[in-house]
């Protein structure tokens, strides 16, 4: 694992290592008929080797868009990145040429998508699609690529890989297809994996299998993992740290244990209170009132203020900065102390 020196104040689990990926003040907007939709409005996060960062948010919070910006697969136009830096191993990817970025994509940073059925090509066998990684990136022959594909399918524990390598995506179950997606992401032994809702389309028992596999492979290869999800349960199971997004901003950012025990932002707190628990039979659920904002008309001040039970005048005028809470934590709330306290 090569890590190029980088000046950074973000604490990594191993203080000697600079983060693998660092996103600084990233903005993404989309030009639409209804005006400019501001999907990402100044996001900062970092991931080190071997670390799992969960980016948590509801639909429209900008969690997937920011990941696509990191991966460099946004459709531009309509998308635009007016501002921001994305450092990967110390180099700003947004300043690279298309050619340079292509060398990183797939080889150094790989992505796992949510819906395996629509991400795989239905008219090509999975062996061909896995082998493509080796043929295109490493120039292997068809035969050698196929042998590698079988090895890869074995590694993600697809039974009878040798017989199934010529099967088509529709012949696999949902869980097996997601394993193939993971295999494809792992093919070139990347240093960072971005998993966008990797288990949302799967049943719980299969979800447990897939998440366990992903965690195991991450440990084995010491990869950084960005897990994008809306599921607070999955996050609690695997993440080291969490960034909670709302309306294109990170509203809270903390190590996993802190956030569940004592949330420092009213939105995080509301989310935690609004999910029913398996191990408790609760009373009436707490519901966050209202709806997430329209991204073309994000409210002034704190974007969460119309839905927030603690909102005061200052929340309607001033955008709260990410206040440091302790050493490795931040909350973008003017009243983070009060939120933590009660």
């Amino acid at each position: 694992m090569t890590v190029i020196d980088d000046v950074s104040n973000v604490p990594a689990p191993d203080a000697a290592l600079a983060p693998l990926l660092e996103v600084r003040d990233l903005h993404v907007e989309f030009h639409t008929r209804d005006g400019i939709a501001k999907a990402v409005n100044g996001v900062n996060y970092s991931v080190s080797a071997g670390e799992t960062l969960a980016v948590l948010g509801e639909s429209g919070s900008g969690k997937s868009v920011s990941a696509q910006a990191v991966m460099g697969i946004l459709d531009m136009p309509p998308a635009r990145i007016p501002k921001g830096e994305i450092f990967f191993q110390g180099r700003d990817m947004l300043k690279m040429s298309g050619e340079e970025r292509r060398k990183i994509r797939g080889r150094k940073i790989a992505m796992i998508f949510q819906d395996a059925l629509s991400s795989l090509n239905p008219v090509l066998s999975v062996g061909y699609q896995l082998g493509e990684m080796y043929r295109v990136h490493q120039g292997l022959s068809r035969k050698a690529a196929k042998a590698k594909s079988i090895e890869l399918m074995d590694r993600v524990r697809i039974p009878a890989a040798r017989e199934r390598v010529n099967d088509y995506p529709h012949q696999f179950s949902g869980g097996m297809r997601q394993r193939i997606m993971i295999a494809m992401a792992l093919a070139l032994e990347p240093e960072l994996i971005i998993a966008d809702e990797p288990t949302t389309a799967l049943d719980v028992t299969v979800q447990a299998q897939v998440m366990e596999l992903l965690a195991e492979l991450q440990r084995e290869y010491n990869m950084g993992l960005i897990l994008i999800t809306h599921d607070l349960g999955v996050v609690a199971d695997v993440a080291d740290k969490i960034a909670v997004m709302y309306a294109g901003r990170i509203v809270e950012d903390a190590p996993v244990h802190d956030i569940y025990a004592r949330p420092a932002h009213p939105y995080t707190k509301g989310l935690l209170q609004s999910i029913p628990r398996l191990d408790q039979k609760g009373q009436e659920l707490y519901a966050i009132k209202g709806l997430p904002p329209n991204l073309t008309r994000i409210p002034a001040g704190c974007a969460f203020n119309p839905r927030c039970p603690m909102a005061q005048d200052i929340c309607r005028t001033d955008v709260p900065p990410l206040h440091p809470v302790g050493t490795a934590r931040g909350s973008a709330c003017h009243f983070w102390k009060e939120t933590l306290g009660d």
Binding site: V204, T205, Q207, A208, Q209, M211, E212, D231, L232, G233, V234, V235, A236, D237, A239, V256, H257, Y260, A261, L272, I275, R277, L278, D279
Partner: peptide, 19 residues
């Protein structure tokens, strides 16, 4: 046992039955 519980404290001592 497969349902993720939103409580990171539970992840160490919860028994998982992986089918």
């Amino acid at each position: 046992s497969a349902v993720p519980v939103p409580d990171p404290e539970a992840r160490e001592h919860r028994e998982r039955i992986i089918l």
